[in-house]
Simulated scan of single mutants.
Amino acid sequence: MPTPSNRTAPTSARRPTRAELLAAVDRTVPDVIGPDLRVLFCGINPGLYTAWSGHHFAGPGNRFWPTLHAAGFTDRRLQPAEERLLLPLGYGVTNVVARATATAAELAPQEFVEGGRVLAEKVARFRPRILAVLGVGAYRTAFAHPKATLGEQPERMGDARVWVLPNPSGLNANYQKDDLARLFRALHEAAHA
């Protein structure tokens, strides 16, 4: 059973020890969410570095924050500890599966399905204009759309438009930074049209 992270972000720039990372298994990271967001970004699940730090997309190789800036969502590259600055801009962050693992491959298909159900409840409650799922495999499994591709989906979740974008993890070598920026920029343009 996942245990909520009650850890505050490290105050220094030090890296976690192996023991600290292993202790982060199954922790959760609080959502950065509010009502009526322009875009609710949805990661697959927190990595161990993220769970250790208590901030979304905190792993040193994760490209989420530089991609948000390159795509025009932020006027500068935010640090993971500044994640709450997204809310006044109309953006939020959550995950399909709440519990932290070393890799998403450790998650069972049923966890994605259950996570998709919980995510649909969040979307109904907070009513974002667009839900952006960052990981096509996670979207396919969580929502039973095995042929989904990147970009805007024909299905909606409640009133929210649904977009699928590549996972920005440094482990996803299929997309380089320019590719990520281009795909995220298309979402930015749609969100601000």
Results as ranks from 00 to 15, higher is better:
Met1Arg: 09
Pro2Asn: 02
Pro2Trp: 04
Pro4Tyr: 06
Pro4Thr: 08
Ser5Gly: 13
Ser5Val: 01
Arg7Glu: 08
Ala9His: 12
Pro10Val: 06
Pro10Asp: 11
Arg15His: 10
Arg15Ile: 11
Leu21Val: 08
Leu21Pro: 00
Leu22Lys: 06
Leu22Cys: 08
Ala24Gln: 01
Val25Cys: 10
Val29Tyr: 01
Val29Thr: 01
Gly34Ala: 14
Leu37Gly: 06
Leu37Gln: 04
Val39Ile: 06
Val39Glu: 02
Val39Asn: 04
Leu40Ala: 03
Phe41Gln: 01
Phe41Asn: 02
Phe41Glu: 00
Cys42Ile: 01
Gly43Pro: 00
Ile44Trp: 02
Asn45Met: 05
Leu48Asn: 07
Tyr49Asn: 03
Tyr49Glu: 06
Ala51Arg: 00
Ser53Ala: 03
Ala58Asn: 15
Ala58Val: 06
Gly59Leu: 00
Gly59Asp: 12
Gly61Glu: 11
Gly61Ile: 11
Arg63Ala: 04
Trp65Lys: 03
His69Val: 06
His69Tyr: 08
His69Lys: 09
Gly72Arg: 11
Phe73His: 11
Arg76Asp: 10
Arg77Tyr: 09
Leu78Ser: 03
Gln79Lys: 14
Gln79Cys: 07
Ala81Ile: 15
Ala81Leu: 13
Glu82Asn: 08
Glu83Asp: 14
Glu83Ile: 05
Arg84Tyr: 15
Arg84His: 07
Leu86Pro: 13
Leu87Asp: 05
Leu87Cys: 08
Pro88Asp: 05
Val93Asn: 10
Thr94Pro: 03
Asn95Phe: 12
Asn95Arg: 03
Val97Gln: 01
Val97Tyr: 07
Ala100Asp: 02
Thr101Glu: 09
Ala102Leu: 10
Thr103Asp: 08
Thr103Ala: 13
Ala105Ser: 11
Glu106Arg: 13
Ala108Gln: 15
Ala108Tyr: 12
Ala108Asn: 14
Gln110Met: 10
Gln110Gly: 15
Glu111Ala: 09
Glu114Ser: 12
Gly115Phe: 01
Gly116Tyr: 00
Arg117Met: 12
Ala120Ile: 04
Ala120Thr: 11
Glu121His: 15
Glu121Ile: 14
Lys122Glu: 06
Ile130Met: 03
Ile130Trp: 00
Leu131Phe: 08
Ala132Met: 12
Ala132Lys: 04
Gly135Gln: 02
Gly135His: 01
Val136Lys: 01
Val136Ser: 10
Val136Ile: 10
Ala138Cys: 04
Tyr139Arg: 02
Arg140His: 10
His145Lys: 09
His145Phe: 07
Pro146Phe: 02
Pro146Ser: 03
Thr149Lys: 07
Thr149Met: 09
Leu150Ile: 10
Leu150Gly: 02
Leu150Lys: 00
Glu152Thr: 09
Pro154His: 12
Glu155Val: 13
Ala160Glu: 00
Trp163Tyr: 11
Val164Tyr: 00
Val164Lys: 04
Leu165Tyr: 13
Pro166Glu: 05
Pro166Arg: 04
Tyr175Val: 02
Lys177Val: 10
Asp179Leu: 05
Leu180Ile: 06
Arg182Ile: 04
Leu183Tyr: 12
Phe184Pro: 03
Phe184Gln: 04
Arg185Lys: 15
Ala186His: 03
His188Glu: 10
Glu189Pro: 11
Glu189Asn: 06
Ala191Met: 08
His192Tyr: 15
Ala193Tyr: 12
